[in-house]
C-alpha cells in the first residue's frame, strides 16, 4: 500500500520520535506530548520551551495486536513475532503516549508495569527504515 507517512512528514517529528521532546507550556508549566499548537491543559498559551522527557513511566492500558490484524506496514513484524503488544504509557512527566512494548513476555504485561523508552526500528516505508521509541520493562541495575 502506498505511503501514508511520507519521509518529510516523518522527518518533521524526529525530535519527538528520537528524543521524546515535549513542549512545556510557559503559562501553566505542563508538558504537551505530542506537541500541540495551543497548550492542551490551559488552552490559553502558545508559548512553549522544548524539554526532553525521561522516557520513564508505566503501562496505563494495552492490547496485543494479532498477526492477522496488523496494519499492512507492520505485517512483516507480525509475521515474525506472531503478534505484538501495543500499550498506552503513562509518562512520569504527565503525558500519555501510545507505543509498542518490547523485551517482554505476554504474561508479564499488566497495567501498572513500570517501563522505560528504548530507541528501536519502527517500520519501513518508501525504502526508508523509520526509527523511534518503544518501551520495555524497567531493567533493574546489574549488581557487581
Amino acid at each position: 500500500m502506498g505511503a501514508h507517512i511520507s519521509v518529510p512528514m516523518y522527518q518533521r517529528s524526529l525530535p519527538q520520535r528520537y528524543r521524546l521532546v515535549g513542549l512545556k507550556c510557559q503559562k501553566c508549566g505542563k508538558i504537551n506530548f505530542p506537541p500541540k499548537g495551543t497548550c492542551k491543559y490551559c488552552r490559553a498559551s502558545t508559548e512553549f520551551i522544548e524539554v526532553p522527557l525521561s522516557g520513564k513511566g508505566y503501562v496505563y492500558t494495552y492490547t496485543i495486536i494479532a498477526g492477522g490484524g496488523a496494519p499492512p506496514e507492520f505485517t512483516d513484524q507480525a509475521l515474525i513475532q506472531g503478534s505484538y503488544p501495543v500499550a498506552i504509557i503513562q509518562l512520569e512527566e504527565g503525558p500519555r503516549i501510545m507505543a509498542q512494548l518490547v523485551e517482554v513476555e505476554r504474561e508479564e504485561i499488566k497495567i501498572g508495569l513500570p517501563v522505560e523508552a528504548v530507541f528501536r526500528r519502527i517500520y519501513e516505508e518508501e525504502g526508508v527504515i523509520r526509527y523511534g521509541y518503544k518501551f520495555r520493562p524497567v531493567v533493574p541495575p546489574c549488581k557487581p
Partner: peptide
C-alpha cells in the same frame, strides 16, 4: 502519526479501552 505508527489499529485502540 501517533496511534497508527505505534502499530495499532482501530480494533487495537478499542481493545486498549476495553482492557
Amino acid at each position: 502519526e501517533y496511534e497508527r505508527l505505534a502499530g495499532s489499529t482501530f480494533a487495537g485502540i478499542y481493545a486498549a479501552m476495553a482492557r
